[in-house]
């Protein structure tokens, strides 16, 4: 019947509108649901999400040792040439020449935070940090060296 469908339509429409208004009314009256971060004010207590990617860093332990073998898997994995690895050869205890990392160059200004380098690293020596305050006055300051001065590879990492 046309008339019954017509009236049904009206009530269905009204009901769905009221459902929508109940949701927004709930949010209007429940201010604890507010998700806004008042960033510069809450800087001290700001909690970033676990999987937030801000920049690539190299993990160093307390002896200033890292696990980077200089294999350049990350350099190959990077889609836009963000990482440049310069290797050197140093003599090990047995007097043999051994490849080691000299400089790990990371261009933050080119990085898209795709995480492919972290995935590619066979020794898990680089990771993503949630730091996002990267603004500087000079672009060249965004080109970073990730291995700390005087650091060397951990014993036993091949």
């Amino acid at each position: 019947m046309f008339i019954i469908d017509y009236i049904k339509d009206i009530f269905k429409g009204l009901k769905s509108l009221l459902t929508g208004m109940r949701v927004t009314g709930y949010y209007f009256t429940h201010h604890k649901e507010i998700i806004t971060e008042q960033y510069p004010d809450n800087r001290a207590t700001l909690k970033m999400a676990d999987r937030f990617r801000g920049e690539v860093v190299m993990i160093h332990d307390e002896n200033n040792e890292h696990a980077c073998t200089g294999c350049s898997a990350c350099e190959l994995a990077c889609p836009n040439g963000t990482i440049k690895i310069i290797n050197k050869f140093e003599l090990n205890a047995e007097g043999k020449k051994k490849k080691a990392i000299d400089t790990f160059i990371y261009h933050l200004e080119l990085c898209t935070m795709c995480n492919l380098c972290v995935v590619a690293c066979p020794t898990d020596t680089i990771k993503m940090e949630p730091n996002f305050e990267h603004s500087v006055y000079d672009r060249s300051k965004l080109t970073k060296v990730l291995n700390r001065p005087g650091s060397k590879i951990k014993a036993g990492v091949e």
Binding site: Y27, H31, T36
Partner: peptide, 8 residues
């Protein structure tokens, strides 16, 4: 608008 959209 802000309170309905869970903003401040």
């Amino acid at each position: 608008a802000a309170f309905i959209q869970i903003r401040l």
